[in-house]
Amino acid sequence: EIVHDYFSIHGCSYTDEEGMQAVDGEDMHGIDNEEMWHADYNLKTGVLSLPDFGDPITFPRFYETSVIEMTGCKANIVSLTKIFNSPPPEMDPPQTSIYPKDDVELGVQNTLVCHATGFYPPSIRILWTMNNVNVTEGISLSQYRPRVDGTFNIFSTFRFTPAEGDIYSCRVIHEALLGQPQAKIYDVDVAIPSVGPSVFCGVALSLGLLGIVTGTFFFIKAFNYNVDMEVN
C-alpha cells in the first residue's frame, strides 16, 4: 500500500541583517507533494490549485486562520533568532531540470516545466529566455513545496509553441549558488531525423543533377557537330 501525506505548512522568513527586516511567508495545504490551496496575502484570499479531474472542495475560513498563524510566525521567528543565537544560515543550492509537459510537436502549443529542488532557504527566482531574449509572458510559478529533508522545491512553467531550432532556458537564482545562476537549456530538436533517408535523398539528387548536366552536355555537343557540318 502507498503511504499518503496530507500536509500543511506555515512558514515565514526573517533576516536580522542591519536594515533588512523583511518578513514574508507561505501557508499552503497539499497532499502527496501536490498543492491544493494556498494563502495569497496580496489578494488577501485563499487560492485553489485543485486538478480539473477532481471534484470541487472548499476551504472555509482557511485564509483567516492563516493570517493568525502568520502573525504568530512573525513574532516567533524574531524570538527564535535570539534563542538560537543567530546561527549561520543553512544554505543548500537547488538542482534544476527542464522538460516539456507533453510530447513536443512543431507548431503545437506546449508547456516547459522548470523544476528546482533541494534548495534552502525557500527564496528563489526563476527567469526564462527564448533564443537568449528574456520572456515575461506565459510564465507561472508554484508555491514552495517542502521536502522530507527540510529543503524545498518549486515549479515554474512557460507556455510555448515549439519551432525548429528554438532554444529555451530557465535560469535559477538562489543565494546558495553564490552569484552563479544555474541555467538549463531546452533545444527544440524534434525527432532526431534518421540519417539514411537524408543520405539517400542527397546522393540520389546529386546523381540526378549529374545526369541532367551530362544530358545537356551531349545535346549541346550534338548541336555543335551539326553546325560544324554546315560550315563545311
Binding site: S13, E69, P122
Partner: peptide
C-alpha cells in the same frame, strides 16, 4: 532565516 510549522496526516490504509 526561515521558520516553519508543518502539520501532516500520514496514512496508507483506506
Amino acid at each position: 532565516y526561515y521558520d516553519y510549522t508543518k502539520f501532516e496526516c500520514i496514512y496508507s490504509t483506506s
